[in-house]
Simulated assay, not measured.
Amino acid sequence: KGRKSLISESRANKEIESNGYIKVVIEIEAKSETIAANKAMKALDILRSFFCIQCNSFSEIIGNEFEPINKIRLGEFHTLHNASGNVFENSFWYDTSCSKAKVYVFRDERNTVKNVRNIVNIFSKFDKQYKSIISDSMLRFVRAFDEKNQNIAILRAWGALEALAAPNESNCDSVTTRCAFIFEEYEYHKQILEHLREYRNRNVHAGQESEMAKTYGFQIQKYFKQLFLFHIRQQGNFKSIDEANKFLDLPADKDKILHLQSIVEKSISFRGYG
């Protein structure tokens, strides 16, 4: 109640709806309007990140370099309402940087919805700390690829990858090795990740930008997606994300890991634990 009139009063043009967008209603409890707005947007963006994991393109042969990578994006207008539906007039916000997305057509809507529901179900089973780290990385991921400036998107997306691969760590090398561990061609993917990390560092420290930025963005998205799905598929196998990362720190080479196994077995025998 009052949404249309509030938007009309707050905007110079006549548009009061984001045409082509689905209207989403989020029901929450909060102690203030600000807290309610933040909680609602966080919930929506996490759900949106699950859809973007499923729906975003893997690459782009011909496209607009200023078009954000995310397929599922927010509309221009957001309003806050009380339990009766009446709008809070001081809590209207209009996203001036909004980049209108094309209507997304699902290739297989039923399968996509099924996959997202499965992810939501598994995600809910993580303990509080594990879930908090994944949530933070998903928010960073989805908000990074809303960016029209692809160089900014890369910086933010790499931050999302770091937040998931090496939370609260300063060891940058661990990001590349842990992400590469997931893939059979370990050395190949490690080299790609090192190249992406070096480009990101040049961008941060020297402001160096590249026409290949969007391509790099798609590559970072690939590694983030696979790392996220690794945690989803392995839910229940690790007590914490630190334990999962110790697993990802293991050597990928067969001979090295078998040698490590033999040392552990000798240690078990020496301590008399066998």
Rank of each mutant, 00 (worst) to 15 (best):
K1N: 14
K4P: 06
R11L: 15
A12G: 11
I16H: 15
G20I: 06
V24R: 13
S32H: 05
E33H: 06
A40S: 13
M41D: 07
D45A: 12
L47F: 14
I53E: 06
Q54F: 00
I62K: 13
I62R: 12
H81T: 04
S84F: 13
S84E: 10
F88C: 11
N90V: 05
S91I: 06
Y94E: 09
D108M: 01
T112M: 03
T112L: 04
V116L: 06
N118R: 14
V120W: 13
I122K: 08
I122E: 09
K125Y: 09
F126D: 02
S135D: 01
D146R: 10
N149F: 09
N151G: 10
R156H: 10
A157V: 07
W158C: 09
D173I: 01
D173Q: 08
T177M: 06
F183T: 00
H189N: 06
E194Q: 13
Y199Q: 15
R200I: 07
A206L: 08
E209W: 15
E211A: 14
E211H: 14
A213D: 11
K214A: 02
G217S: 04
Q221Y: 05
H231A: 04
D242V: 03
E243F: 05
N245F: 00
L250A: 07
P251I: 00
S267C: 11
Y273N: 07
